[in-house]
């Protein structure tokens, strides 16, 4: 069964979705990623969808669920690299990916993660 590789980069995880995923592969990714966030003590997750030619309601929901699950496990998620045609279609379809942070590419996504995690460190310094 095909799986989507999850790479560890310091305290972040990078997931590059390169295949035209069928639904079971997407479900496997949820299991693999949540397990990996815990085992790698990851603080952030970048999901690169620049190779995806479409995002339909199923994949859109999966991205939202991944972001929510990561948040519960104290990791921030940023979805990067959405193609313009995909963004246009997604909005027309009626999905706006509420609750999912996005960035243009991996570099900017990484910057966003660093900033978010630094802010949390400051905010949480007294209460932790």
């Amino acid at each position: 069964m095909e799986r989507i590789p999850i790479l560890k980069m310091g305290e972040y995880l990078l997931v590059t979705i390169q295949v035209d995923m069928h639904d079971r592969v997407a479900m496997t990714l949820q299991d693999d990623l949540t397990a990996r966030i815990v085992s790698a003590h990851a603080k952030g997750v970048l999901i690169d969808i620049s190779a995806l030619e479409i995002v339909d309601s199923f994949i859109g929901r999966m991205l939202g669920d991944l972001a929510a699950m990561s948040r519960v496990l104290a990791a921030e998620t940023v979805v990067v690299g959405m193609r313009p045609a995909v963004a246009i279609t997604l909005v027309e379809l009626g999905l706006s990916l509420t609750g999912v942070r996005t960035a243009l590419n991996v570099e900017r996504g990484m910057e966003l993660l660093r900033r978010r995690i630094a802010e949390q460190g400051r905010d949480g310094a007294g209460s932790d």
Binding site: I54, V55, D56, F58, P84, A85, I88, T89
Partner: peptide, 17 residues
């Protein structure tokens, strides 16, 4: 064009599912 291709493929994916 690319945007219309994307719309068609996305609609097809929804209905096929």
């Amino acid at each position: 064009n690319l945007v219309d291709q994307t719309k068609l493929v996305t609609a097809a994916s929804e209905l096929a599912r």
